[in-house]
Design a protein around this nucleic acid. Structure first.
Lengths: 234, 234
DNA sequence: CGGTAGCTTGATGCGAGTCAACCCATGTGG
DNA sequence: CCACATGGGTTGACTCGCATCAAGCTACCG
């Protein structure tokens, strides 16, 4: 039984925001999802570390991120943790077949989401095909990300994992070559199937090799050699 | 660059069966999917090792397994391979957002599938909400499996990986405690992020520990201690 | 009966995990 | 304002699980 890295929950316990107002002013951070608002999503805000829902809870709602970052994770009985994905602005998650959530979702930083009540898909799809289309597209996107991530977890070296992660986050958060990671080392480690020590060491090595630069807090990363990083993706 | 286990392709090169007849007699092996036939899926048969489609090919069709087994996999440039999933009777796969397939699908054994022409989801969902519902459910199921598999790949030991795999396959192929695996060691290894040697050694050890019995060909496995195997799932 | 594909077994090595300090920034209370 | 605690990150020494390399075994097939 190796590698466990259960993050110490910084979260306030379960301080669920009690279902906000429907008012939807603009939502600048959102892209393609003006539709979502029309479907009557309820806006909710979660503090850093707070839990949106836990494994085993009733799955009455699914969510779309407006701003911030959510980590979606599963735990083994002895505390080993795997973060399946980080959900950023626009991403949809928490849709289940069964009655219960099969994973936990927590806010990595202050995060705003839209919560949608789950109905029968058939009805949903029939009433608003465009939203159904968006949902299906979103599910397929999640699946594609999951498939790419399985290659990473199953077959890539630590260096390749970090390179892939950095390029992926750069693509999704992109502001030039400067990357501001919202999550800490523990989260990165649990996402990539590594330990925090290995994450740290690999990043340090990449600095030595001139691939990246690390900001003071360790959260700001400048990709100085994207080409080399890209070649490490496999 | 470790761990590569690119399987030697036994496959006949690209001998695509030329789009069969629409006749759909009963399809006993299928469960819930009588609907599928009504949607005009085209029946196709693939020989052991044959390729249904490859990464990068036009994604004009998606598929549902009628009988047999399909492996869905991705390759890194140097040949390392990850099998994302095994698709068994009833499973739907190959649905993409983009115009091209993002992974390869190959028949593990003689396999019969239904091929569906992909249209705009919106139309599809609107025309036949029940089929849309089935599709959405199927996508969510795939995603759930992928999430469970990421925990396995990222955080489980070799022994736990094998135990989980055996219990999973038993649940899907179940005929009592006797399990007839359709795939070879190479496929199992590439699915679990291991090498064939480790798969073999771990199985041998499980025999010694009295958890399983191995048939002569190595493909038939009897689960003699399901409880212990279950406890190894984490 | 020889060739080969798939599986198993053994000896050895390495990449990443484990254990343990240590650093630094931030926050808090006396 | 300083002493101290705390959380997040880095670094080093050592260990170990699984990969690698290399035979050998068995069943099947021409």
């Amino acid at each position: 039984m190796p590698a466990y890295a259960a993050s110490t929950r910084t979260a306030a316990p379960q301080a669920r925001i009690p279902a906000g107002y429907l008012a939807m002013q603009g939502s600048a951070a959102l892209g393609r999802s003006a539709l979502a608002d029309d479907r009557g999503g309820t806006r909710r805000t979660f503090a850093k570390g707070e839990e949106l829902f836990a494994e085993g809870e009733a799955a009455d709602f699914f969510y779309q991120v407006v701003s911030g970052t959510v980590r979606v994770c599963k735990l083994l009985s002895d505390g080993r943790r795997q973060i399946d994905a980080f959900q950023l602005a626009g991403d949809i998650f928490g849709l289940e077949n069964g009655a219960e959530h099969r994973f936990t979702a927590e806010a990595v930083e202050e995060t705003v989401v839209l919560a949608f009540r789950r109905g029968r898909f058939a009805n949903l799809l029939h009433d608003n095909p465009a939203f159904g289309d968006q949902l299906m597209t979103s599910m397929i996107t999640s699946l594609e990300r999951a498939q790419d991530h399985m290659v990473l977890l199953g077959r890539k070296t630590a260096q390749e994992k970090i390179a892939t992660f950095l390029m992926d986050m750069a693509g999704r958060l992109a502001k030039g070559d400067r990357l501001d990671l919202p999550m800490q080392r523990t989260d990165i480690a649990d996402h990539l199937g590594l330990t925090i020590e290995t994450v740290s060491r690999t990043l340090t090595q990449m600095v030595r090799d001139g691939l990246i630069k690390l900001g003071a807090a360790g959260r700001t990363i400048t990709l100085t050699d994207k080409l080399a990083l890209q070649q490490l993706n496999g």
